[in-house]
């Protein structure tokens, strides 16, 4: 059994909305509201959900790029929010991030070599020729030539830039990489290269990933476990196989049904959710999904659904899922 690397408990991030010259707080955007999950060593947790549901905010809070409003995160047993000094430096080394946009995430004025070497220098891992050698090895590890050291990001294609970003993330020998939509901006043939590369690195280096995406085909391909997020909350979490064979939350089921399938024989009628995702400023009372849920009942509008563990590792937040006989309240027709 692998050890738990990252433990997130009841994490919250509220952004205040202010008004007037005294910046009076008139409300909050509840971007992340009480989410909990674990990531084990060598494991990939996929996080799916639509834009604005809080996926990126959650990762930024975990990385301590922004302050949390509540809850705990522990990494390797240490309380992340109280880390200081050397321990904090180690944490920043151990947890890296790769962003969606390989165009804006690399400094255009630095050479590829300097981009990758930045962290190695800052963390005093190596200097001079040794540093250069390390960068060369990293470039080769991600399938680029060591000879690219003195070239600039604009000389590279989207897929190559994403490889540079991956090499930079690897430079500090991290244990966990947060991948925030790392292939969404790439063409399919390039996407395949990057997905294969991430899989290879995971195996070689026993890395863990928090893999954020909106693409249900990609997330199945990469993840060991998957969590669905809606309006700041995790509404379902399960092992990948269980997630795909027995999705329970109506929102997860609707996402599946909306995922354009290649199977022409499955000419199914998609579940079409009404309207848009409501604002996270005044999220709906009761179950946050009830305004769009095709099967919502009276209780859904009033009472907030508690998380239910329906089987080993399968959590769902829905009033209509029966714990003793878990069946999805809505099927894909």
């Amino acid at each position: 059994m692998n050890n738990t690397l990252l433990e997130v408990r009841n994490l919250k991030k509220y952004f205040p909305i202010t008004k007037g010259i005294f910046s009076k707080v008139i409300g909050h955007v509840k971007a992340v509201d009480n989410i909990s999950f674990d990531i084990k060593e060598g494991e990939t947790l996929g996080l799916v959900g639509e834009s604005g549901c809080g996926k990126t905010t959650a990762s930024r809070v975990i990385l301590r790029l922004i302050e949390s409003t509540g809850g705990e995160v522990s990494f390797n047993g240490d309380d992340v929010f109280s880390l200081k000094g050397e321990k904090l430096r180690q944490f920043r080394k151990n947890v890296q991030i790769i962003f969606q946009d390989p165009y804006s995430s690399l400094n255009p004025r630095l050479t590829v070599g300097n981009i990758i070497a930045e962290g190695i220098g800052a963390h005093k891992i190596a200097t001079g020729a040794k540093k250069k050698e390390m960068v060369g090895e990293l470039l080769e590890k991600v399938g680029l030539s060591a000879g690219y050291y003195n070239r600039y990001p604009h000389e590279f294609s989207g897929g190559q830039r994403q490889r540079i970003a991956i090499a930079r993330a690897l430079s500090l020998n991290p244990r966990l990489i947060i991948c925030d939509e790392p292939v969404s901006a790439l063409d399919v043939s390039i996407q395949a290269q990057i997905l294969n590369l991430l899989a290879k690195l995971k195996k070689e280096l026993n890395l863990s990933y928090l893999f954020i995406t909106h693409d249900l085909s990609v997330v199945e391909h990469v993840s060991d476990r998957i969590a669905t997020m809606y309006l700041g909350e995790i509404v379902e979490i399960a092992d990948t196989e269980e997630f795909y064979s027995n999705p329970l939350h109506p929102y997860t089921v609707a996402l599946f049904s909306a995922n354009p399938s290649l199977d022409l024989a499955a000419k199914r009628k998609p579940i079409i959710l009404k309207g848009d995702v409501p604002s996270a400023i005044e999220p709906p009372r009761g179950c946050r999904f009830h305004t769009r849920c095709p099967v919502a009942e009276g209780i859904c509008r009033i009472e907030w659904p508690e998380p239910k563990d329906v089987s080993q590792g399968h959590m769902v937040r829905c009033h209509l899922v029966d714990k003793s006989n878990p069946k999805a309240p809505i099927g894909i027709s």
Binding site: V188, S189, Q191
Partner: peptide, 24 residues
């Protein structure tokens, strides 16, 4: 053929995706 085999498809499992060599 390359396009179809380079995309992840639900239910296909985790084996490597086909990569069309080279670039556009």
């Amino acid at each position: 053929l390359g396009l179809f085999t380079s995309i992840p498809v639900v239910g296909r499992g985790k084996r490597d995706l086909y990569v069309i060599p080279g670039n556009v």
